[in-house]
Computed example of a mutant assay.
Amino acid sequence: MPKKHRTTNKKIANSLIYTVEEQSELLPFLLKSMSNRSRNSVKSILTRGQVTIDDHIETQHNYVLEPGQTVTILKNKEAVKESALIGMSILYEDDDIIVIKKEAGLLSIATEKEKHRTALHQLMEHVRLENPQNRVFVVHRLDKDTSGVMMFAKSEQVKRKLQDAWKENVKERTYVALVEGEVKKQKGYISSWLKESTTHLVYSSPNKYDGQHAITHYKLLQSNKDFSLVEVQLETGRKNQIRVHMQDLGNPVVGDKKYGSKTNEIGRLGLHAKVLSFSHPTTGQLLRFVADVPKSFLTKSK
């Protein structure tokens, strides 16, 4: 049974922030922290994705909070405003592009089930506050459960310019992955030909030239006998590339059941887009954006 908890908390303009001091399940923690609200009201806040644990959106009532974690609750008034961004923050914006930091749990684009709580939809609402004709276009994607830096274009022309010369424009694209087990080599690379099955599972083909060529470079940052933190540089940007290649290495990404993981101790996928550096599509200026490595990745791999 989880222990009772104490919290230290502070308020900022649109959020309540709590630091967990003792282990507790999430719903009881929220009910105690927001004792002025009804149980149904608190459950609604959870369901709407207004609760963030460290760097990921959490909607599970029985998620177990650990001491030291930070719980952020976006206030209701902010959440219903069109201008409020849930599960993301804007790092940079000009007339051509928007760069965001996305949290794990937020979809990049709409699916059959979820149309509105996506990065694209929220940014579309954001730019239309200035002019109803404004639009936003997807340049590249991050999986729902991957956090980190992501870029969008504000016109079809800029989107095409970025995509058509992606390899030339992007100077650095660095991820960090929390993986299972102890990675043996300090650094190395994985090269394979990726194919996708009818069930949308990506895998490395045993035959050369059979599929899309994918190259992943990795460097060990820290490890213990259970987990390793690796820095990953993509030479190619194929679907699920890091996840497949880490499985090939024998060290699947934590929380990645689809690609061989047996653990989910951080309540999310252990993949984070840390750095995106590129030449601005209009000015040519070199821009570099960094999203800090999630705390849970660092503590688990110490």
Rank of each mutant, 00 (worst) to 15 (best):
N40Y: 15
T70V: 13
S228Q: 03
L31C: 10
G148P: 07
L194I: 08
Q241T: 01
Q241M: 06
S15G: 13
A84I: 06
G181D: 08
K113N: 12
I190A: 09
P2S: 15
E168D: 13
K159Y: 14
V293P: 04
Q233M: 15
K102C: 00
L27C: 00
H280I: 00
R268T: 10
L229V: 11
V254T: 07
S223I: 02
R48A: 15
L26M: 01
Y92V: 00
F289P: 15
E156S: 11
E103T: 10
Q186Y: 14
E21T: 03
T59W: 06
K257L: 06
L120N: 04
K184I: 06
N207V: 10
K262V: 11
L120K: 03
G148A: 04
D292V: 14
S197W: 07
K81I: 13
I190S: 06
R48L: 14
V253N: 05
I97G: 03
K184C: 10
K295L: 12
N131S: 08
Y218I: 14
I215M: 09
S89G: 13
D256N: 05
V42F: 06
N36M: 09
V230F: 00
V293E: 07
S38L: 04
S204G: 10
K159M: 12
E168R: 15
T146Y: 03
T283Y: 00
I73P: 05
M124Y: 07
E156D: 08
V244Q: 08
N251Y: 10
K3V: 15
E182H: 13
S296G: 07
E168G: 14
N224D: 02
I242F: 05
H200S: 07
Y259A: 01
K274M: 14
A177Q: 04
K81F: 09
R6N: 05
D95Q: 12
K208W: 02
G68D: 02
I215V: 14
R128T: 12
S108N: 12
M124N: 10
L162A: 13
D143A: 02
F297E: 01
E196A: 14
R243P: 03
F289I: 13
H116M: 12
Y92I: 00
R135M: 10
Q233A: 15
S197A: 14
R39Q: 07
D248F: 05
Y63Q: 04
H5T: 15
R160D: 12
H140I: 11
Q133A: 12
Y63P: 05
T70Y: 02
L220I: 04
A177T: 08
D143V: 15
I53L: 09
L46M: 06
K43S: 08
L178N: 01
A177C: 05
T199Y: 14
S155F: 02
S223Q: 10
E82D: 15
S192K: 05
S89F: 13
E22N: 09
S279A: 13
G148I: 00
T8R: 11
K262H: 06
F297A: 01
H5M: 11
R288E: 12
H116K: 12
T198A: 15
T59P: 02
V99G: 01
S24F: 02
V127G: 03
P252V: 10
N251V: 01
I215E: 09
D248K: 10
S41D: 02
L249M: 04
D164Y: 11
Q233H: 12
L220S: 03
